[in-house]
């Protein structure tokens, strides 16, 4: 049997490179985009392709990367989470709220020991994720709507906690992980790398990861296979919220302050990273590997545009266009693959 299988695999390869490439379009296109963008900026600006700048790029995408880990799970299940940025924000604010602030910070907060502050913040984001999960699975609210509501709710909690003020202090560990570095490597990059790696291992090598792909691939079939689809969807929403929370705490330390609307751009950035990387919006295809490529595409784009002489208002438009192109490829790749299997 084994030999017939290899013969067949060989046959499939021999069938020609073109169909193979077509079915792999979702993985190849983002990679080519990355190479193209890097090449372009390297030629356009001498300061782009340096080791220092690579470090910059890595640091710049770290918070997005941490948030995108959880979002990858959600999108693989063919759901969406629009509350990631708000949850990141409220968790970052919460951890500061439970930390002793300097006397000039005028927030009626509750100072606690660092470990307690971190624990409470994590519990908060997990709880908000759970609310998302229950709304989606028990009440049956589409995730798009449910998390839209959660986006407001989390923003509301943030507002109540800081009341328009800015807090600066977070527990020491968080400060170190968010803004410190070890041997020249920023801790936040290391944390992002570890979380991406963990996410990849879970998705690729665990039973839960397989369930995520199968639920995303065909939810009806997953249910007919006796999987607890609601449990899996719920878990994914909680994972997303917790990743966002971690990203939020480290982000606050990284920026050096906790305030309202601090993470607004991270919603679009995280979704873009996942989708540009080639994870299918229809679920079941893609993964952390794709998300990493997507992160780099965004990172290189954002950073590179700073290195070339370009109208800073035009940057926004260019990012939008690149995102649109990625979406087109994403949907198109899905269709090509379906055609290959039909």
């Amino acid at each position: 049997m084994a030999s017939s299988e290899t013969a067949l695999a060989a046959g499939q390869r021999a069938r020609g490179l073109a169909p193979f490439l077509r079915s792999q379009m979702r993985n190849i296109a983002p990679f080519l985009t990355l190479i193209f963008l890097s090449g372009f900026f390297a030629l356009a600006s001498p300061s782009f392709a340096t080791l220092d700048n690579l470090g910059n790029i890595l640091t710049q995408v770290s918070v997005t990367g941490i948030i995108a880990v959880g979002l990858t799970f959600v999108i693989l299940c063919a759901e969406i989470d629009l509350s990631i940025a708000s949850i990141a924000n409220v968790t970052g604010i919460a951890v500061a709220y439970f930390t002793l602030q300097e006397s000039y910070v005028n927030i009626p907060n509750i100072p606690l020991p660092g470990a307690a502050a971190i624990l409470l913040a994590i519990l908060l984001c997990a709880f908000l994720g759970l609310v998302n999960a229950l709304g989606l699975t028990m009440i049956g609210i589409p995730s798009f709507i449910m998390t839209l509501a959660m986006m407001q709710i989390a923003a509301g909690i943030s507002a109540l906690l800081v009341r328009g003020q800015i807090a600066y202090k977070v527990p020491g560990v968080i400060t170190t992980l968010g803004s410190g570095s070890i041997g020249g490597i920023p801790w936040i990059v290391i944390v992002a790398a570890i979380m991406l790696l963990l996410g990849h291992l879970v998705l690729t090598y665990t039973r839960f990861g397989r369930y995520v792909y199968m639920v995303g691939g065909n939810r009806e079939a997953a249910e007919y296979s006796g999987l607890n689809v609601k449990l899996i969807l719920g878990a994914v929403m909680v994972i997303s919220a917790v990743c966002s929370g971690i990203g939020g705490m480290l982000g606050v330390a990284h920026f050096g302050s906790a305030q309202q609307n601090e993470f607004d751009t991270y919603l679009l950035d995280s979704i873009a990273a996942v989708v540009v990387g080639g994870t299918s919006l229809f679920g079941g295809r893609g993964g952390i590997g794709n998300t990493i490529v997507g992160l780099f595409v965004l990172g290189v784009l954002n950073n590179g545009l700073d290195h070339v002489n370009i109208d800073s208002f035009l940057k926004i438009l260019i990012r939008g266009l690149i995102l649109l192109a990625a979406l087109v490829i994403n949907v198109y790749a899905q269709r090509l693959r379906e055609k290959a299997v039909e």
Binding site: Y213, G217, N218, E220, A221, Y224, G284, E338, V341
Partner: peptide, 13 residues
Amino acid sequence: RRDMLFHQEPVYK
């Protein structure tokens, strides 16, 4: 069968 099978996944999965 469409309800029970994953068309884009291998037979063993």
